[in-house]
């Protein structure tokens, strides 16, 4: 009975509640749990998108800035083994997408990947999630993960 109750609590927690923090975990020097208040202290950036004629201005922090705080190698340090690392972005509903570290590093490529916490100046909510990614340079929106809860860095080492 207790386990059923617990499971139910877990499930409703998973789907019904808005997570108010995003976790940066995995193979990082400094795991982080970031609230909107934490993100507000980081260097801020914006991305403007248009969907069916409706414009949205997302504001947040470039993902590489967040990863820098977590101690993920960047710039000159991003070489050797670090280059086989990937970043898994996970949403509350179980949706997951991948980026490679190189793809996120401005020293490698002029990409734009925003960890957003506001849309048009207001905190995001509901199906947007409290946090989301916005990847304007991707052609489809599939990696612009909504309802973002977790960023996991994984160092991949494949046996020869």
């Amino acid at each position: 009975m207790r386990t059923i109750l617990l499971a139910m609590l877990l499930i409703t927690g998973l789907f019904a509640q808005e997570t108010d923090a995003v976790q940066i975990t995995g193979d990082v020097k400094q795991p982080l749990t970031l609230s909107a208040a934490d993100l507000a202290k980081y260097p801020r950036a914006t991305v403007r998108t248009t969907s069916n004629g409706m414009e949205t201005v997302y504001e947040g922090v470039w993902l590489h800035e967040v990863l820098k705080k977590a101690g993920v190698p960047q710039g000159g340090e991003l070489r050797g083994k670090a280059l086989s690392s990937y970043v898994l972005a996970m949403a509350q509903d179980g949706y997951q997408v991948l980026f490679s570290l190189g793809e996120l590093d401005p020293a490698f490529i002029d990409n734009q990947i925003l960890l957003a916490d506001t849309a048009n100046g207001k905190p995001m909510f509901g199906a947007q999630g409290r946090f989301r990614l916005v990847v304007p340079k991707d052609k489809p929106g599939a990696r612009s993960v909504r309802m973002l809860t977790k960023i996991e860095v994984v160092q991949l080492r494949k046996a020869q």
Binding site: V47, S51, P136, P140, G141, A142, R143, S144
Partner: peptide, 9 residues
């Protein structure tokens, strides 16, 4: 498009 969350373009 088929797949994923929504996005910019």
């Amino acid at each position: 498009y088929e797949g994923g969350h929504d996005g910019p373009d």
